[in-house]
């Protein structure tokens, strides 16, 4: 069986297209590369959707935490504290069992007990809390002069936020936000180890990597492959976010541009 056949059979296995049974013996390197790569579809799906939806909530949380209204401020602070102060792993478990019991009384919740929706909700709230804190920090460090200048030009309220506060906040927060995006992608590997079932063995990259490690008793092949895929994914994320960073800073003298410094040191 050539490698192309294997790719045709297993390339989209993680979303249920192709061969039904996973390979059970005679594992080749091609099998491992294909299946683990196929699992990356889920990591990318969770990562991208959680990032996009989380961004909106994160900005609201940041603005909420900086708000003068006590109720809004306290609510935002609590959401951020709960999701940043507890392990993502436990959050996944809790959410899964919460959705399970909700499903029994309200059948509407039944999609949330499967990974594609339920885990996404958790990741969305989690990344929103982490990025919200980053954006809040940036909001606090906007130069006073910028706001005063905006006042002098007669910009107020929403207009000032849209034209001055928001772009500056984004520019200041972007390097840290890039790291957050990378961690989010790394965190997606937790999904199928935390309660959410991998239906019909459709799992993410780590799910297949540990499948191979279990079957072959040899961790030295699948995990480095997984690591390789993640390094590539990380490089792509850095490239995209770097391009955005350049655009956000395009009006500044080039020396002042804040470089994105990789800082990969967080487990959730």
């Amino acid at each position: 069986m050539s490698c192309w056949d294997i790719i045709a059979d297993y390339g989209l296995r993680s979303i249920g297209i192709g061969e039904r049974l996973l390979p059970r013996s005679d594992f080749t390197l091609c099998h491992q590369f294909t299946l683990i790569g196929s699992g990356m579809i889920w990591n990318i799906y969770f990562g991208i959707l959680a990032l996009i939806t989380g961004f909106v909530l994160a900005v609201s949380l940041a603005v909420g935490k900086a708000s003068h209204n006590t109720v809004i401020r306290k609510t935002a602070e609590w959401i951020i504290f709960v999701f940043r102060g507890s392990p993502l792993f436990i959050q996944f478990f809790f959410a899964y069992f919460l959705f399970l019991s909700l499903k029994q009384t309200f059948p509407v919740f039944s999609p949330l007990t499967s990974a594609w929706a339920g885990a996404l909700v958790v990741l969305f709230l989690n990344t929103a809390a982490y990025s919200g804190e980053i954006f809040y920090g940036a909001l606090q460090s906007i130069p006073k002069g910028d706001i005063e200048a905006a006042d002098a030009y007669g910009l107020t309220g929403l207009k000032r936020f849209r034209r001055i506060t928001f772009p500056t906040m984004l520019r200041l927060a972007w390097p840290a936000y890039t790291n957050e995006a990378i961690f989010l992608f790394h965190a997606t590997t937790l999904v199928f180890f935390s309660g959410f079932p991998a239906k019909r063995q459709q799992g993410d990259a780590l799910y297949y990597a540990s499948y191979f490690a279990d079957k072959t008793f040899n961790p030295f092949v699948p995990y480095p492959i997984l690591a390789g895929y993640f390094i590539v994914l990380t490089l792509i994320v850095i490239a995209i976010f770097g391009a955005i960073n350049k655009r956000l800073n395009r009006h500044l003298p080039q020396q002042q541009m804040s470089k994105i410094r990789l800082k990969m040191n967080l487990i959730r």
Partner: peptide, 10 residues
């Protein structure tokens, strides 16, 4: 550089 949980498992 590597996802931490993968490192743990490996």
């Amino acid at each position: 550089g590597v996802p931490d949980i993968a490192f743990f498992l490996f």
